[in-house]
């Protein structure tokens, strides 16, 4: 009976987790003419690919940092509200709209005669070339990841024992001191979880780069998509994929949380 239950799950996980990753690693050793070679790896360490990886890391870092900067105060504010679960729910709700549709909205908002430029014109500012710029890419990235960062942050801030905060206040700590010396250290696990759920996907965004950044930003994800679907060089695409997986593992090691909570991105 128990065996019978086991079989579908094990078979499924074998076929769709183990084998695909194995194939990906395997393909990374073949060049476009199906020769067994290390040339893809050599190419990955060439200057152009290194540059691309560094810029991908830089943008992922910017997106993660700004998302954290926006979400931390937001989580603190929601914690103090009476109907905190309701407000959290309201903030998370836009997550249920497909990312693609929200990204598409930004094409309109950032376009030459769009909302942002209309506002800028009314304030007497010169026209901004926002669409197809890296600034727009970072803004949309932050927008997309806010709910994903907010959830783990809120969960850890919300679980802080209120008496700790009261004790600090009684002992004369200022607001900033309470946040810096009490709340932040106690919510560090949430920060780690939030960084993890934002940084890794930010490295691999490709749809937003194409629609919002034009060809200004090339992330690891964009490079993989291009190698697989445009250049049809699966070997090189797999090699970048292998490195993306490696980076992912390193980031997970650094942001490993002590508690066994598993950070599923959504509610």
């Amino acid at each position: 009976m128990r065996r019978l239950l086991f079989i579908p799950y094990i078979v499924w996980m074998g076929i769709f987790v183990i084998i695909p990753i194995g194939l990906l690693v395997g393909f990374s050793f073949f060049d476009i003419e199906d020769n067994l070679t290390f040339s893809n790896y050599r190419e990955f360490f060439s200057w152009s690919y290194l540059q691309m990886s560094i810029s991908s890391f830089w943008y992922a870092f910017l997106i993660t940092a700004f998302t954290l900067l926006v979400c931390y105060p937001l989580a603190l504010i929601i914690k103090q509200l009476k109907l905190k679960m309701f407000w959290l729910f309201i903030i998370i709700l836009p997550t249920w709209i497909n990312i693609l549709l929200k990204t598409y909205a930004f094409i309109g908002i950032f376009s030459r005669e769009g909302l942002v430029n209309n506002l800028a014109a009314q304030l007497g500012l010169p026209e901004l070339q926002l669409l197809f710029s890296d600034v727009a890419f970072v803004i949309v990235g932050v927008y997309i990841f806010i709910p994903f960062m907010l959830l783990p942050l809120f969960n850890s801030i919300n679980s802080i024992d209120q008496s700790m905060i009261s004790a600090a206040q009684d002992l004369g700590a200022t607001r900033m001191q309470v946040i810096r010396k009490v709340i932040f250290p106690l919510s560090i696990e949430g920060v780690k979880a939030g960084v993890q759920v934002v940084f890794i996907p930010a490295l691999s965004l490709f749809m937003i780069t194409r629609l919002i950044a034009g060809n200004k930003v090339v992330t690891l994800g964009t490079a993989i998509e291009q190698q697989f679907l445009t250049a049809e060089n699966w070997g090189m695409g797999s090699t970048i994929g292998v490195f993306l997986i490696l980076f992912m593992m390193i980031i997970m090691l650094f942001t490993r949380t002590k508690s066994k909570t598993i950070g599923v991105g959504r509610l």
């Binding site: 695909p20 691999s204 992912m248």
Partner: peptide, 18 residues
């Protein structure tokens, strides 16, 4: 958990190969 944390691009590309 590998499946949950894997970026979509990796899942997509490896399934394409599969």
């Amino acid at each position: 958990n590998i499946m949950i944390v894997s970026p979509d691009v990796i899942i997509g590309a490896s399934f394409l190969i599969l």
